[in-house]
Write a protein that binds this DNA or RNA. Structure first.
Length: 230
DNA sequence: CGCCAGGTGGGAT
DNA sequence: ATCCCACATGGC
């Protein structure tokens, strides 16, 4: 059993699964002249909301909430701001933790408004200062909405790398992130954005198909390069 | 039915 | 620093 390097793992996953094309909102990541197009403000905002709503929640449930917000023409910070928290919570009910998440969205709206008035750029640091936005949500927003080269580490990433034997099972977020980012340090910023986007999506797909809570190691495409530390 | 889902903040130790 | 828990709906 030989453990792969992270670029090799990326290649192996890429071969095992077809390109995923995230963020999973219709049309966002379709190619334009072989590179991703600039997103509209509305698309960016929708991705930010999705990043908050999907915290510890299946994406399927988030889609319903986003559809409800779209239907009420609320995929816009100024319009959403005028809803009180109770009404907002009701609209996003399907995402679970809806009262908490309504509060988080409210905090994010305050952040956007405040940022505009002092025209601060979006950085990891100032995102992390928002109540309800932790490392994964911040990095999802930076990578998927703002195309900044940060790796989004999630429970699946840690599960897969932990089981394979590439990191300790209880490795913390920042360690795993720096490991993954260092592995592609020689790439250009734009290449990193593409790789980090796709790699994260492949981790999710692999975790759903084989590296589940109860893993299906027998049929797993990475079977021969895994320590199987379940 | 039970388990799990692309986490985070708060409080106790 | 590090554990433990509340937060909640929907799909399988």
């Amino acid at each position: 059993m030989d453990l792969p390097t992270l670029p090799e793992l990326y290649k192996n996953l890429f071969k095992a699964y077809s390109p995923q094309g995230w963020w999973p909102i219709q049309g966002v990541y379709e190619k334009h002249n072989n590179h991703i197009r600039v997103l509209t403000e509305k698309e960016r905002f929708e991705i930010c909301l999705g990043a908050i709503l999907t915290q510890n929640t299946a994406w399927k449930n988030v889609e319903k909430s986003l559809a409800a917000l779209q239907k009420h023409d609320l995929l816009d910070p100024q319009k959403l701001e005028r809803r009180d928290m109770q009404k907002l919570a009701l609209l996003i009910r399907s995402s679970g933790y809806h009262n908490q998440k309504a509060k988080k969205i409210r905090a994010f709206l305050d952040f956007l408004k405040n940022k505009k008035s002092i025209s601060q750029p979006i950085t990891r640091e100032n995102l992390l200062s928002v109540w309800g936005i932790g490392p994964e949500t911040a990095d999802s927003i930076l990578l998927y909405a703002y195309h900044q080269p940060v790796f989004v580490v999630d429970a699946y990433t840690k599960r897969i790398l932990g089981r394979m034997g590439l990191v300790e099972k209880d490795a913390d977020y920042e360690l795993v992130r720096s490991l993954l980012e260092s592995a592609f340090a020689s790439k250009t910023e734009q290449e990193k954005v593409k790789i980090f986007n796709e790699f994260h999506a492949l981790f999710v797909e692999h975790a759903k198909q084989y590296c589940r809570t109860k893993p299906l190691c027998e049929q797993c495409p990475l079977n021969t390069s895994c320590a199987k530390r379940i």
